[in-house]
C-alpha cells in the first residue's frame, strides 16, 4: 500500500501532478471522510425518502380530506421549489428557531447541519416518491384486483401479494430516476458546510493549490459513483422484470 502512496509522491515530484489525497495521510483521511459523508447522505436519504414515499402514498389514499390536503401541500412545495432553497429554508429558517443557548452564551443549534441536509434531501426526494408510488398503485388494473378477490383473497392479502409487487415493478423506472437525482443533489449540502465530497475537496484544493487535479478527481468520483448507481438500478429493473414481456 505504501508503495502505491509513494508512487503518487513521485508522480508529483516528476510531473507536478499533485494528488495529496494519496500520499498525504491527513488529506487522504479528509477525502475518505468526505466520500463516506456523501455515501451516508445518499444512503440515509434514499431510505428515508422511500419510507416517506410509501407512507405518503398511503396517507394520500386516506378518507380524511385534511390528511390528503396536507400530503398534497407537502408534495407541491417540494416539487416546485429549487432544492437549494429548501435546504436554506430548513437550515436558516427552521434551524435558527430550534436552538438553545450554550454555556458560552452563544446560541447552539439543536439540529446539526448534517441532520438538516439529510432531512431536507429526504423530504425533497420523498415528495416525488409519494407521487411515484401512488401512480404505481393506481396503475394496477381493477380487474386484477377483482380476480384476487373472487379467489377469496382478503383485502390485506390482495394488497400484499398482488397490488404491491405489481405497483413496485411499475414504479421502479421513475423511482430510479429520482434516487439517482437525489444522489446528485447531495452536493447541495455544500451550501450549509456539510463536509461531504465537494466540500472537503474544495478544502483540499485551497490548502494545496491543486485545483485542476482535485477538480478532475471530483468529477471522476461522481461519474463512477452515479454511474455505478445507474448501472445497479438498471440491473435491478431488469432482474425483477417479468419474463415474456418486451425485449
Amino acid at each position: 500500500m505504501d508503495a502505491i502512496w509513494h508512487w503518487f509522491r513521485v508522480l508529483y515530484d516528476t510531473t507536478g501532478i499533485n494528488l495529496p489525497i494519496f500520499y498525504d495521510a491527513f488529506d487522504r483521511r479528509r477525502f475518505v471522510n468526505g466520500l463516506w459523508m456523501t455515501l451516508a447522505l445518499s444512503v440515509i436519504s434514499i431510505i428515508a425518502s422511500v419510507a416517506i414515499g410509501v407512507v405518503g402514498a398511503w396517507l394520500q389514499g386516506s378518507r380524511l380530506r385534511m390528511t390528503r390536503r396536507v400530503v398534497n401541500g407537502y408534495i407541491q412545495f417540494f416539487r416546485n421549489t429549487p432544492p437549494l432553497v429548501q435546504i436554506y429554508f430548513f437550515y436558516f429558517g427552521i434551524g435558527s428557531l430550534l436552538s438553545t443557548t450554550g454555556p458560552t452564551g452563544h446560541p447552539v443549534p439543536l439540529v446539526s447541519n448534517v441532520a438538516w441536509a439529510i432531512i431536507s434531501l429526504s423530504f425533497f426526494a420523498g415528495a416525488f416518491n409519494v407521487e411515484i408510488f401512488r401512480a404505481g398503485v393506481e396503475a394496477v388494473p381493477k380487474t386484477t384486483i377483482e380476480a384476487a378477490e373472487s379467489l377469496g383473497f382478503s383485502r390485506l392479502r390482495t394488497y400484499l401479494l398482488i397490488v404491491l409487487p405489481l405497483a413496485f415493478r411499475i414504479s421502479l423506472p421513475a423511482l430510479n430516476n429520482n434516487l439517482v437525482n437525489l444522489v446528485k443533489t447531495t452536493t447541495l449540502a455544500y451550501a450549509i458546510a456539510v463536509p461531504e465530497l465537494l466540500y472537503v475537496t474544495s478544502q483540499i484544493w485551497s490548502d494545496n493549490l491543486n485545483v485542476p487535479e482535485m477538480m478532475n478527481v471530483l468529477l471522476l468520483v461522481y461519474f463512477v459513483l452515479v454511474g455505478a448507481l445507474v448501472l445497479a438500478m438498471d440491473r435491478w429493473e431488469r432482474a425483477i422484470r417479468v419474463p415474456g414481456f418486451g425485449a
Binding site: 393506481e138 396503475a139 388494473p141 405489481l166 411499475i170 423506472p173 438498471d234 429493473e237
Partner: peptide, 15 residues
C-alpha cells in the same frame, strides 16, 4: 425500461 405487463399496459406503459 418498460414494465411491459400486457394486463397493465395502458397505465404502466404511460408511467
Amino acid at each position: 425500461a418498460a414494465t411491459d405487463l400486457p394486463v397493465l399496459l395502458p397505465a404502466a406503459t404511460r408511467l
